[in-house]
Amino acid sequence: MEYRRLGATGLTVSPLCLGTWRFGKESNGMLETDRETARNLLDEAWDKGINFIDTANSYGGGKSEQWIGEWLADHDREDFVIASKVWWRTRGGPETSLSRKSIRLEIQGTLERLDTNYLDVYYIHRFDDGTPIREMLRTLDDLVREGTVRYLAASAGAGWKLTKALWQSDRENLERFEITQPRFNAAYREAVEDYLDVCADQELAVCPYSPLEGGFLTGKYDRNGDPPAGSRGDRYEWNDRFDERQWRVLEAVRAVAAKIGATPAQVALRWCMDRERFTCVPIVGARSVDQLEENAGSMELSLTDDQLRQITDAYGADAGGEQ
């Protein structure tokens, strides 16, 4: 497996990032991923060479960070690139904020739960229209200068807001965002075209969430079949959720997977990793060790230019250009 430079940063990461948003998350009174399963997933990720772990202060009400911190205590912290996020509040005050006070409170809680004295990557989970952008950027810049954070990042948001933040940082000689985390995959591109244009132009790394489009690109969906087990709604509701372009992409992914003896999920993840306009490190949030093992197989996969183009072109001419 070849590790890669994360955009213009000095960080070297695995081609996949382990997402931990399910750690400690309750759905209908049940934990999606409990502490034991979380530890097993972290073990499996490390065994497969994945050194990049993504979390957030809000995941599982803080349990995700806490469980990662407990696991890290048995490992060398320097072997890992740890990313967390801020926007939702876990320590009182307004529900969401990127004010100076909020960021300072939340980074303290994040470091305590992770049992570390620094973060490699710190994302803003959203842009905060209620806080002056200068206040937010100066506070984040202070964290980098103090050594609490190594690199800054931005998750979801409009392309123009990302551009504005980069311009403000450059204008005032502040640390800028170097990594982004949009929703992006082979079957979801046009909506983030402007955002990705900014990333490519400014040499920002892209770590997309939902690289399998919520499970759609695993191949478990069928145009004419019943919805997957556990899905809500009937066949027609699920079929209406995806448009014709997305079904064409899935068919192309399935065709390539069948030809090379891989799974659709592995092919779809490899397509993300092989973007040329920007460094792309997809975030996978597996539910089980077996699922993570399957996803990790994408790191050893090789697709030809023709196979990559087959998947890209399936999205159609109205895709807004090759991403």
Score class of each variant (00 low, 15 high):
residue 1 M to N: 02
residue 2 E to K: 15
residue 3 Y to P: 00
residue 3 Y to K: 14
residue 4 R to I: 05
residue 5 R to Q: 11
residue 7 G to K: 04
residue 8 A to M: 02
residue 9 T to G: 02
residue 9 T to K: 07
residue 10 G to A: 04
residue 10 G to Q: 00
residue 10 G to R: 01
residue 17 C to L: 07
residue 19 G to E: 09
residue 22 R to G: 15
residue 23 F to V: 14
residue 24 G to P: 15
residue 25 K to A: 08
residue 25 K to M: 15
residue 29 G to H: 14
residue 30 M to I: 05
residue 31 L to K: 09
residue 36 E to M: 10
residue 37 T to K: 11
residue 37 T to L: 15
residue 37 T to C: 07
residue 38 A to E: 03
residue 39 R to F: 15
residue 46 W to Q: 06
residue 47 D to R: 15
residue 50 I to H: 05
residue 51 N to M: 04
residue 51 N to Q: 07
residue 51 N to D: 01
residue 55 T to F: 08
residue 56 A to G: 08
residue 58 S to D: 04
residue 59 Y to E: 05
residue 59 Y to A: 02
residue 62 G to A: 01
residue 63 K to V: 09
residue 63 K to W: 12
residue 64 S to A: 14
residue 65 E to W: 09
residue 65 E to R: 05
residue 70 E to R: 00
residue 72 L to T: 06
residue 75 H to P: 04
residue 82 I to P: 05
residue 84 S to C: 01
residue 88 W to A: 03
residue 92 G to F: 14
residue 92 G to N: 14
residue 95 E to N: 01
residue 96 T to G: 03
residue 98 L to G: 01
residue 99 S to T: 03
residue 101 K to F: 14
residue 113 R to M: 04
residue 113 R to A: 04
residue 114 L to N: 07
residue 115 D to F: 02
residue 118 Y to S: 07
residue 121 V to C: 07
residue 121 V to A: 00
residue 128 D to M: 04
residue 133 I to M: 15
residue 134 R to V: 13
residue 135 E to Y: 03
residue 138 R to K: 14
residue 150 R to K: 15
residue 155 S to Q: 10
residue 156 A to Q: 10
residue 157 G to W: 05
residue 158 A to N: 10
residue 164 K to C: 07
residue 171 R to Q: 11
residue 173 N to Y: 10
residue 178 E to Y: 06
residue 181 Q to D: 11
residue 183 R to E: 15
residue 190 E to R: 15
residue 190 E to F: 00
residue 191 A to P: 08
residue 192 V to I: 09
residue 193 E to A: 14
residue 193 E to P: 00
residue 193 E to H: 12
residue 197 D to L: 06
residue 198 V to Q: 10
residue 199 C to A: 04
residue 199 C to I: 05
residue 200 A to T: 07
residue 205 A to E: 06
residue 205 A to T: 10
residue 205 A to M: 02
residue 208 P to H: 13
residue 211 P to Y: 13
residue 215 G to Y: 12
residue 215 G to Q: 07
residue 215 G to S: 13
residue 216 F to C: 10
residue 218 T to W: 09
residue 218 T to P: 15
residue 222 D to Y: 12
residue 229 A to P: 01
residue 230 G to N: 06
residue 230 G to Q: 08
residue 236 Y to C: 00
residue 236 Y to W: 14
residue 237 E to H: 12
residue 242 F to I: 14
residue 244 E to T: 09
residue 245 R to F: 00
residue 246 Q to A: 04
residue 247 W to L: 03
residue 253 V to A: 00
residue 255 A to E: 07
residue 256 V to R: 03
residue 261 G to R: 03
residue 261 G to S: 02
residue 262 A to S: 12
residue 264 P to I: 12
residue 264 P to V: 05
residue 265 A to N: 10
residue 266 Q to S: 01
residue 270 R to P: 01
residue 271 W to R: 07
residue 272 C to V: 05
residue 274 D to A: 06
residue 277 R to A: 13
residue 277 R to E: 11
residue 277 R to Y: 12
residue 281 V to D: 08
residue 282 P to E: 02
residue 285 G to E: 10
residue 285 G to V: 07
residue 287 R to H: 09
residue 290 D to C: 00
residue 291 Q to K: 06
residue 292 L to Y: 03
residue 295 N to R: 14
residue 296 A to C: 13
residue 296 A to I: 02
residue 297 G to T: 01
residue 300 E to K: 11
residue 300 E to C: 06
residue 301 L to E: 11
residue 302 S to I: 06
residue 304 T to A: 01
residue 304 T to M: 04
residue 308 L to P: 04
residue 309 R to Q: 11
residue 311 I to S: 02
residue 318 D to L: 08
residue 321 G to M: 10
residue 321 G to Y: 09
residue 323 Q to P: 12
